[in-house]
Design a protein around this nucleic acid. Structure first.
Lengths: 144, 144
DNA sequence: AAACTTATTGCAAATATTTGCAATAACAAA
DNA sequence: TTTGTTATTGCAAATATTTGCAATAAGTTT
């Protein structure tokens, strides 16, 4: 497993949550897939390894990991997808036309976050934002 | 109806889309509700006015209006909600603990958007972003 | 190691959302 | 106003996601 075991174990155990075999398998599987995947894709993978794991468990684990920010979810191309939260957070520019996804480094949000913290006294988390729009290629082909 | 009829009529007709009575009723209803609402709440309202309108039509209309950016959707408190896109776009700071929602004016995104446009050659739309975190009140009560 | 507390699971049923398709109706063009 | 094209609707069936609940098991305490 490529994610840091100690790290996420502690994170999960925080506040009384439990590290179950199901959760380990689910997180490992997503990690092994190495790309963003839908709940169903993840379930298929997990289920082929351990057929007793229930789909509801997968859904609950996905939400759980998102809450813990070990995973991030995004709505891309009409589907909700999940992926391992990278240590260097990033966001996505998704083209509404062709569906292309571009990464946007989090540090570009620096000033914005500073404002949120100082003015709103709000502590934003390592969010994973999706910004919709048109990519360079599609802008030129669009008629309007 | 408080939204500008001519305005949205044109917007809908663009690219061959059609302004149907169903779409009018749905948009008017959301406008009249004056707050963000779930697909089901909207359906209930619409249906009580015009019982022949189907739920699938409501779902399709909601997506349609979001694509046209007459509506924005957000995931708040585990539910997907919809509201009229305001002429002055704004975003939401949602507290993961207590669920409180704070508005964040779009102009704080100015620099970020400039970067996206000039460096990525990407044309972001009037997005409605949701930033999760902890509000001021909940930060002080949190133990970790 | 045994006992205890309670978070988590699996299951099945409830909800929520999407989709294929034939019938309808909006809008454009004649 | 009539005709033609095709986007949209309603319906029903398919998917996707959530939820209540009793049984199980993780982590803690004795």
């Amino acid at each position: 497993m490529s994610h840091h075991t100690l790290n996420y174990t502690q994170r999960i155990r925080q506040k009384g949550h439990r590290l179950t075999p199901q959760r380990q398998i689910i997180l490992d599987t997503i990690c092994a897939m190495g790309r963003h995947a839908t709940a169903h894709e993840i379930y298929e993978q997990v289920h082929s390894a351990v057929p007793t794991i229930n789909q509801a468990t997968v859904y609950r684990a996905l939400h759980f990991f998102c809450d813990l920010q070990l995973l991030v979810s995004a709505k891309i191309g009409g589907q909700t997808v999940y992926e391992i939260a990278t240590p260097t957070p990033h966001h996505h520019l998704v083209c509404r036309q062709c569906g292309r996804v571009e990464a946007l480094a989090d540090y570009h949000f620096h000033d914005l976050i500073e404002h949120i913290v100082t003015e709103h006294h709000f502590a934003p988390e390592n969010n994973h934002l999706t910004i919709l729009g048109l990519c360079a290629a599609c802008q030129s082909t669009t008629d309007q």
